[in-house]
Nucleic acid binder design. Structure first.
Ligand SMILES: NC(=O)c1ccc[n+]([C@@H]2O[C@H](COP(=O)([O-])OP(=O)(O)OC[C@H]3O[C@@H](n4cnc5c(N)ncnc54)[C@H](O)[C@@H]3O)[C@@H](O)[C@H]2O)c1
Ligand SMILES: NC(=O)c1ccc[n+]([C@@H]2O[C@H](COP(=O)([O-])OP(=O)(O)OC[C@H]3O[C@@H](n4cnc5c(N)ncnc54)[C@H](O)[C@@H]3O)[C@@H](O)[C@H]2O)c1
Lengths: 207, 207
DNA sequence: ACGAATTTGTCAATAGTTGCACAAATCGCA
DNA sequence: TGCGATTTGTGCAACTATTGACAAATTCGT
């Protein structure tokens, strides 16, 4: 079955499937099944089959899925069969952790540049081989490099400002760590990470 | 209308509502409406009213919601009208950022202790006033202190091991930063944060 | 070569979520 | 006081997501 508007919730599960496949491959496994994937991910096998069926037929009846083949296909579907440059704004504690994070490379991402506003930080090294740049030059650099993805790791009261600059400069996808809901024009996608919100979700269930 | 199994997806939105209320209060606002909240959060006003109606009647027709009152009620519903101790396992780059993070306190959480396995790190200060402890003592300390919530920030290949230890010791809620799906007994809730998965969700929509 | 065991992809049924629309309540102001 | 403007809480309808079930395809052991 081919594409006509795949539900966003399905798209959100694909990276999880891809992650699981990568671990299976690292374990020298060649074949898996929707049953096995589901058991590992706490998802029903029917859901996995249904999700994948939005994009094509990747399995073989009686056998299951060739891990390398499905991995390759999921990477193509998610457009991570290439390397994406990501701009990081905010070089505080979190920004330093993200700039140094080794987990992005294997999944299609590279922190291409880091920007901060603090004169004491500008010019300092960060991550593997980057130097913190002045946020005043952010818009020009984004336009010049054609970067499309940004991570925001500045204080909450600066986040909307930074987002506006990024959007003006042509950024089309933002991963926001500031604990505030960003207002962006449609056409710009935003994903949010807020650990305190996750913790509060958990405490609801703790008497 | 009172409680009979509130949908998890509704619970997950409450921290977002709470966060928005806190900003409104900081702005010296006293009253808001489902309309205003919805506009700020990109959610329909009907959904906000319906979500809140699972827990009681907090608004006043014709007027809206008293911000301080609704905030107090949401905190009670989420059980963050108290301070929770959180155990952090893993004192790498991310662990250091989390240990130093100022954003937890105002939302009901305190990093109570940090554990690592690396002898070079054990005994070193971290965060405001903590010292990195030996992960070998983790289980005993969790039992002794009665901690119920943990954050896992160790490498992926260690995360399940650490989770098992935590669960054995009585932890009931885990926020997992390792990019792997944890298998935990029912009764233990797990939330996952995986920035690469979020980025891949975004790249799906970038041609 | 054949039957038992797997496993996919999909249809149909079930379950869950969101949005509409409106009565009832409240407010502000003339 | 009374009227128009708001805004809530909710029943109901529309929409979306998940699960169950099974024919068809494939494998494997005898
Ligand atoms: N530290 C964590 O573990 C953590 C976890 C989750 C979310 N967050 C959130 O991530 C954001 C960053 O957290 P942090 O702990 O790194 O904070 P931080 O204060 O250590 O760092 C913020 C950095 O942003 C820079 N900055 C401020 N305004 C800027 C601007 N307009 N343009 C560019 N740079 C600017 C500051 O100079 C500073 O270097 C915050 O919104 C925080 O709430 C942090
Ligand atoms: N750095 C980031 O920005 C980032 C972002 C998202 C997710 N993550 C994930 O979070 C985890 C930690 O990331 P990091 O960058 O801090 O890695 P890191 O390698 O800097 O730190 C990992 C720490 O865990 C400790 N450790 C290893 N095994 C342990 C065990 N069994 N018990 C206790 N401690 C143990 C190590 O000694 C080290 O101090 C990883 O799973 C990573 O994939 C990191």
């Amino acid at each position: 079955m081919a594409d006509k508007a795949v539900p966003d919730i399905v798209v959100g599960r694909l990276p999880i499937y891809l992650r699981a496949l990568t671990y299976l491959k690292a374990d020298n496994r060649e074949i898996t099944s929707s049953q096995e994937l589901g058991d590992r991910l706490g998802i029903s096998s029917a859901q996995i089959r249904k999700d994948l069926s939005h994009f094509g037929e990747f399995g073989k009846q009686g056998t299951g899925y060739d891990i390398a083949h499905l991995e390759r296909n999921l990477k193509a579907i998610l457009h991570v069969d290439r390397m994406w440059d990501v701009v990081l704004v905010g070089a505080g504690d979190l920004g330093h952790a993200l700039a140094a994070y080794r987990g992005f490379a294997g999944r299609g991402f590279r922190i291409a540049a880091v920007f901060d506003k603090d004169p004491a930080k500008i010019g300092k090294p960060i991550g593997n081989d980057l130097v913190i740049e002045d946020v005043a030059t952010l818009a020009d650099r984004v336009r010049e490099q054609g970067w499309q993805i940004a991570i925001i790791a500045v204080p909450a009261d600066q986040a909307q400002l930074v987002a506006n600059t990024l959007v003006q400069a042509g950024i089309r996808a933002i991963l926001n760590y500031a604990p505030i809901t960003l207002m962006c024009p449609s056409g710009v996608r935003v994903e949010q990470i807020d650990p305190a919100a996750h913790l509060q979700h958990l405490t609801y269930y703790l008497g």
